[in-house]
Structures are given as C-alpha cells and as structure tokens.
Amino acid sequence: MSARDGIFAGDDPFLLAQTWLAEAEATEPNDPNAIALATVDPDGLPDVRMVLLKEIESHGDGQGAFVFYTNYDSAKGQQLAATPKAAFVMHWKSLRRQIRVRGTVTREEGPKAQEYYASRALQSRIGAWASAQSRPLASRNALMVEVAKQGARLGLNPPRPPFWGGFRIDPVQIEFWADGAFRLHDRFRWTRAPGDPGAVWQVQRLSP
C-alpha cells in the first residue's frame, strides 16, 4: 500500500475521519463515537475518561475540529480551562482501526451548543442541571431527588445551563491506524504547525 491508498486515501483528514466514523456506525454495537479523552490536572498528571464525540467538523479545505459537550465545572472542564490542550483516541474493534488526535481546545458556546442541547432528550437536559458533575454525591437517591426538583422548576423546555456547553479540539496532529497481519500495522500521521489552523497538513507513514 502506497501513501494514502485504500482506506487512507484523501487530502482532508477531517473528511477521512468522518468516513471512518460512518463506517464504524454500521459495525460497532455501542457508541461508535466514543473517545478516550486525555487532559492534565494542575500538577501535570494525565487524566483520561470516555466521552462521546458529537461532531467532526469539516470545511472541505483541510480545516475543521472535533467537538464534544460537557459540564464546564466537571474535572475535565476545569482541567481544560487551566490547560486548554487535549488528546484523544477513538478505537473500533470491529474495524480494527483507530484515530488519535492531539490539539488545542476552545469552548463552543454559540448556536451549535444551543442546538445540540435542545436536541437532547428532556431528561438529559434536566439531568445537566441536576448533576454537579465530578463532585461528591451522597447517594443515587439524592441525585434523583435533585432531578425531580429541577424538572418541576424548569418545565418542558429547560434552557441550556450556563455551566454546560461544548469544547472544540483544533488538532495539530491526527494519526490514522489500521491493524495489519503479524502486527505490521499501517499508520499515517498528519501534522501541521501549532497556532496556525490554516497551515498545510504534512502526512508521514510511521513504522508499526
């Protein structure tokens, strides 16, 4: 396989990522958009958890971003506020592929955040108000009591909480990986200069 033939073909990493995700949606039994998101705490200690990637933006010119949503007061939200850099891996066992991303992070608090929040199930929207994410909880019953309280207060059309919204990861590095026989995997790393989202991507094959 020469550079970017077959499943690696293309000149836009965001379009390629969209294609791989679409293929995974047909084969993965649960949450094909799940990513293992890594941040760092104030001591520089890495922290990682699974979240759901909600959008792969592509502008068709090699520019785009990866977007997820969360509580800004959660551990990851506070860590990203202090150190706005992140990495994630998206792995699909059924396809034997993965995508790794590293980049800088900014908040998504505009119309897209409003639109996504409004698209969620009512109980999920109320849950965003009720959960003090990442902080100690006395019991599950206490959580459910708070859900009921917020549901009664907010009604059938709760607004988006001011502490809840999106994060956009603007990558400086994207790696596409596919399993190979005898662990001779195929890996292509796309890189561009930090701080210059308009920079041209450079693609390099890596040893397995």
Rank of each mutant, 00 (worst) to 15 (best):
I169H: 04
G195I: 12
Y72A: 07
P46A: 05
L52V: 12
R125V: 07
S2E: 14
Q173I: 04
R4N: 12
H59P: 00
A81Q: 12
F163T: 06
R205Y: 04
G103C: 08
A128P: 12
P161Y: 01
G103A: 05
Q79C: 02
S134D: 14
Q18S: 08
E109I: 13
Q79W: 02
Y69C: 06
Q63E: 12
G60Y: 00
I169G: 07
V51E: 05
A82Y: 05
S131I: 10
P162Q: 10
P13C: 13
R96N: 09
E175P: 04
P13Q: 11
P42T: 00
M90I: 03
P29D: 11
P162Y: 03
V40P: 00
G198K: 10
R205P: 03
L21N: 09
R140P: 01
P159E: 05
Y116S: 00
H91F: 14
L156W: 02
E146L: 11
D5M: 13
T83L: 02
W129V: 12
R140Y: 15
V147W: 00
G77W: 01
S124R: 08
W164P: 06
F68C: 14
Q202H: 15
A22S: 06
Q204K: 11
H91R: 11
S139I: 15
G103Y: 11
G103P: 06
G195R: 10
D73W: 09
N30M: 12
V200G: 03
N141P: 01
R135D: 04
A193K: 15
A193Q: 15
A86C: 04
G10C: 09
G166E: 08
D186N: 06
D41M: 13
G151T: 08
D196L: 14
P171R: 03
A193T: 13
A38C: 15
Q123F: 11
G198P: 04
G64Y: 00
D12G: 00
V101H: 03
D11C: 06
S58W: 01
I99M: 12
D186E: 14
W92A: 03
E57I: 06
G127C: 13
R192E: 01
S94D: 06
L156Q: 13
Q18R: 15
P208I: 06
I99S: 10
H185I: 09
L45V: 05
A86I: 01
A178I: 01
Q63N: 10
I99C: 09
R135W: 10
R183G: 14
H185S: 14
L52M: 15
M90R: 11
D41I: 06
A34P: 03
A142Y: 15
P136N: 04
E146G: 04
Q204F: 07
L37Y: 03
V203S: 03
S134V: 14
